[in-house]
Design a protein around this nucleic acid. Structure first.
Lengths: 169, 169
DNA sequence: CCCGTTTCTCTTGATATCAAGAGATATGCT
DNA sequence: AGCATATCTCTTGATATCAAGAGAAACGGG
């Protein structure tokens, strides 16, 4: 078994024999796998009429539970985009009929963004398709190895969990 | 030990009990870890006066070995950007004195992009710093576990290695 | 040898993002 | 109470990217 990174590591070893590039064996694979996943997710979402950024926002609302309603501020912190970007995203999602803006009764500066019935259907269908795809990608890997992999990745990820707010997918 | 994804999985389980979202345990961690890595790499490169995209291009040239020279076409396939983007990148790298364009003696349509001495110094320093950071990130993990992790990731990555051309970082 | 096709780089136009800031309301300290 | 500061959303201007295509040179079959 051989992948992109084996070639990468070989080339660096030849050109930079002074450096021990062994960390790339793990971390370069993480980055490259993530790039492939991004492309695949885009393809899956496209089949369900959603852009990745649309899924991100709708999934955040869906995951928050009834009444599927959050402020733009919370949404932008959860999805790690700027306020200008979130305004633009909500505009387009509202135009598409997937969310609706309501004034916030508790804060006259603010609005609340609520998932529409169609928005919920779309994000539910897209998530199901995503999980199906991801399951097929892991298909060959036995449960014990999946758990080992998840555990090892968690040990790398958890120290990076800063005072950051929320989640994404 | 607990990370972002544990919370994510919990929330989905509550809202979508019909779905088995177990694949997220692995693949969501891959994506989120990659996002953290991107941010950290950006910080490391900034200390060495490089943007991530600058490092991508310069590293590609550096890794190709002497005379550190490639066509724009090969570079754009290697870094997975469009030709317009690569033209723009080479323009800016040339203005910064990190690469130089030369006519290709073997093909009058083409040019060759060559790493300058300063370009090489910069990319070498940035790579050293990157590896140092990545080593610190893996710091706690014993070599045997690193290898297990690399092996598991390779088994996911290698089927995705399509008839794609080259490499990146 | 010639002409259609491919390959190569660069240009153009559209778009999503970010950084910075504006305007309105809420909050808290004295 | 009152005033300064913080918070919230949206606007503006700049930028990097992509998709599509133009122009020039190379290639290859008849």
């Amino acid at each position: 078994m051989r992948d992109e990174v084996d070639g990468l590591v070989e080339a660096w070893r030849a050109e930079r024999p002074d450096l021990d590039i062994e960390p790339l064996q793990v971390l370069s694979r993480v980055s490259r796998l993530a790039r492939h996943l991004d492309r695949a997710r885009r393809a899956v979402f496209t089949e369900h009429g959603l852009e990745p950024w649309e899924f991100d926002v709708l999934a955040e609302l869906r995951r928050s539970g009834p009444p599927y309603e959050m402020s733009p501020g919370r949404l932008l912190r959860a999805t790690l985009v700027t306020s200008g970007t979130m305004t633009n995203r909500i505009d387009r999602l509202a135009t598409a009929g997937l969310v609706r803006r309501h004034p916030d009764p508790a804060d006259k500066r603010g609005v609340l963004v609520r998932l529409s019935a169609e928005g919920q259907e779309r994000v539910d269908a897209a998530l199901s398709a995503l999980i199906e795809y991801e399951e097929s990608l892991l298909g060959e890997m036995p449960p014990a190895e999946r758990e080992r992999l998840a555990t090892l990745l968690r040990s790398l990820l958890s120290p990076l969990d800063e005072p950051a707010p929320e989640a994404g997918v």
